[in-house]
Nucleic acid binder design. Structure first.
Lengths: 348, 348
DNA sequence: CGGTGTGATGTTAGCGCAAACATATTGCTT
DNA sequence: AAGCAATATGTTTGCGCTAACATCACACCG
């Protein structure tokens, strides 16, 4: 056994178990056992091996390990976007839970495009992950087929309005829209405007809108004006759209925004213009992003339970991965978002 | 040859090349060739195979493929955080470039903790990626050793002030700090306060601060007050810290924030309090986040060239992956951030 | 009409590791 | 002192795929 403590010279050939095995004078199998804390190994060899591995700078090859053991401790997480504050928080929840397990999340981003989703999913599945967490219930036929055929736990998150493939964790956006509509009506507002993203791709925003208008309709109230945007700084868009809409319809007394960011833009605009919020004009957004805490006035919103969704989804995957065997399945967790009225949803 | 077009029944055993091979009546090798578009395959067999693969719902096993071909088309991207707007934009730049290559980014998040970084790096390297893009130049000795020993392209991004392992793409934060200091002095401000994150972990913020104070010192100006925060909503923290600092030192005439988010909080506070910005008090942040566009007044800032950094880093990896052989190496790209004076950095 | 290229396909071997089983080595019992 | 657990280590095999080479069928040449 020869172990030098010097930094390894530029390694032409990547290191393998065999190198560690030779350096420490035991078989590859024993090295493997030490490195995975598996089986009985005497303290002496254990240290010998660890020392050799460390001084060589050996990093195990998971590709080979995964192939041999038929176990890949990855969880595919497929989300539409990273840049809107909501998914990072979901990710945080997921990591929190997976950190306590051997599982590891791998993120794929679809940019709200179904064909992207299909491609990302295919790529991910080709690594044979232990589970999939995917945003939304709307997927292409091909994507659904892949998910079903994969034979691994699938958790669709964020949304519960629809047909799940396997498990679901989320909130009902339709219900959320309804809830907000009721609160707004109850506060006495009647001339309501809606501002949001262009929705063909954002199913959850669409469902909120549907639930929202449904309740209004029941009360004989109709949306007075609506406007949709795409791209750009959400804060700036919120400002612009609000200005435009209020100019068009000065008699508006409430604006419902499909997300907090544009809502915040609207709020800033109103405060600037000296509009009496919430007396003359009420405002509400959606998501409950932390950002709102710093605004001059707290925007009414609804918490989307993002990190809890992440945690619950990860727990499902982790549990099923442990209990091995495709036991269970079909879990359905619907969380209830609560309205946070803040300072912008109450008639004075 | 039998190919049924029905949806595959619940697959007990995951599909392999052999299944497709049997279903299409050709050898596994030919199937492999078809699926990878490699080598000569007649149009007839090609279609036969594609059809079989599709109707079975076969997804190739990259684990096995990677092991056999000794090629893993993954790029490890290691960043401190996803929740602060800066890294998502870097990611976008990276994806943009890698999308045109067979390479695929895989993200790891360190939460600014060196021991996390070490662990994440180890995990990533154990998948034998084709390259590493990692934020910052400061890493633990162990991390540096791993990166050197990995024998793959390593691009350290965001920062150029320091010793790189291999390639670097970024800006000089020290220089950025200096530049801002000069601009502030030139505009005639003298009573300057600094607000930022607790810095032991955020090296780039620290370097900006160092550059900043260095220039001030040369002009005989000393920071009048400074305050650091940790955690919480950055916007709210900016507001609070600004309030506290202005109360302590009413004679302050400029506040330099280590990021735009707390800067925005400060700006909102000042506007609310009717403070004359930038006449009585100037403000500046750092990053050039899109968010600022929606603020009532545009905060002075400095663009950190985030997406360009991502693109350049990805290009380096992609190029080296193509040209095979560890050709090249040691590329160093220093971008020059420009001051965007906005509305808050000019004495009237 | 045998030689010789050119596509199209098949065969063999092995990537690096871990599961399963086989074999030492030790201490302890009776 | 033989027998038998335990514990500690080694050997064999194969995961699913691809590189490299081997083979085959055919067309085209002089």
């Amino acid at each position: 056994m020869r172990v030098t403590d010097q930094a390894p010279s530029p390694p032409r050939r990547p290191l393998t178990l065999r190198d560690v095995s030779e350096a420490s004078g035991v078989s590859e199998m024993t090295v493997s056992r030490v490195l995975r804390n598996r089986g009985d190994v005497s303290e002496a060899t254990r240290e010998k091996v660890l020392h050799a591995a460390k001084s060589l700078g050996y990093v195990p090859n998971k590709i080979a390990g995964a192939l041999a053991s038929q176990r890949v401790n990855l969880v595919a997480v497929i989300i539409p976007s990273l840049s809107n504050m909501v998914f990072p928080e979901v990710m945080t929840g997921i990591s929190e839970v997976l950190d306590e397990t051997p599982l590891q999340p791998v993120v794929g981003v679809t940019n709200y495009r179904p064909e992207r989703e299909e491609k990302v999913l295919y790529e991910m599945l080709s690594w044979r992950p232990s589970g999939v967490i995917i945003a939304g219930l709307e997927h292409s036929e091909a994507s659904k087929a892949m998910l079903k055929a994969a034979g691994i736990p699938v958790v669709e998150i964020m949304d519960t309005d629809g047909q799940a493939i396997d498990a679901t964790v989320g909130i009902s956006h339709r219900r959320a829209g309804r809830k907000m509509a009721k609160a707004i009506l109850k506060a006495g507002y009647r001339n309501i405007g809606f501002l949001g993203t262009k929705m063909p791709l954002d199913h959850r925003a669409r469902k909120r809108f549907e639930g929202f208008t449904e309740v209004l309709a029941k009360e004989g109230v109709e949306i007075m004006d609506q406007e949709f945007y795409e791209g750009g700084s959400a804060l700036a868009k919120g400002r612009e759209m609000t200005a435009a809409m209020l100019t068009r319809n000065p008699e508006l007394d409430f604006l419902y925004y499909s997300n907090d960011m544009i809502g915040a833009g609207g709020l800033l605009y109103c405060l600037e213009k000296g509009i009496d919020v919430p007396g003359q004009l009420g405002l509400a957004g959606f998501n409950g992003v932390e950002l709102l805490d710093g605004l001059p006035r707290k925007l009414a919103t609804m918490d989307a339970c993002r990190s809890e969704i992440g945690r619950a989804a990860a727990r499902i995957i982790a549990t099923r991965a442990e209990t091995e065997e495709s036991s269970g399945g079909g879990e359905r967790i619907e969380l209830s978002p609560k309205i946070e009225p803040g300072d912008t949803l109450k008639r004075r």
